[in-house]
């Protein structure tokens, strides 16, 4: 028991989880809020399933720096997003815009959902239609006998 406790407490200690994410100072809390939202929405291209906020790749750090300096110099969120998309494509956005190339991405799940529901309905209907055949007289007496045995 004691050993298990020790192991558990060791598991709770994380050695390498301290990402080297720099701190930034903002005079305006609204700016800080926008900064946080932006770096959470933008994808890091080096570790592709991380956003800029989570990634400690060098490029992510440079891009955070860029977002920060653009914000400080008064750029709007759209300007910053456009700046990134111009350079890295829609891929930098975790929520890509709806376009012919991304249509499958946006509509696909709903098509699959509709297909699934249709399939389910068809199966359920089919199952209801198969009727239970009535028992013959012989079977009926057999059942009766079985039931009577219990009493």
């Amino acid at each position: 028991m004691k050993q298990i406790l020790v192991i558990w407490s060791l598991l709770l200690v994380s050695v390498s989880a301290h990402a080297v994410i720099e701190t930034r100072s903002f005079t305006d809390p609204a700016l800080e809020e926008r900064y946080t939202v932006l770096i959470n929405e933008l994808r890091c291209l080096v570790c592709q399933n991380n956003n800029l906020a989570d990634s400690n790749a060098e490029l992510a750090r440079d891009l955070r720096e860029h977002v920060y300096s653009m914000l400080i110099s008064g750029a709007t969120d759209t300007e910053i997003i456009n700046y990134m998309v111009e350079r890295y494509g829609d891929f930098v956005l975790f929520r890509p815009p709806f376009k012919p190339t991304t249509a499958a991405l946006w509509i696909g799940p709903f098509i699959l959902l509709v297909l699934g529901v249709v399939g389910l309905v068809v199966i359920i209907r089919k199952r209801n239609r198969t009727q239970v055949e009535a028992l013959t007289d012989v079977e009926r007496t057999q059942v009766r006998r079985l039931l009577d045995q219990d009493e």
């Binding site: 440079d62 891009l63 350079r87 494509g89």
Partner: peptide, 13 residues
Amino acid sequence: ADGKAGIDWGVYG
């Protein structure tokens, strides 16, 4: 040196 041109060219790897 600071990778600014790299960002302008969309370099990530």
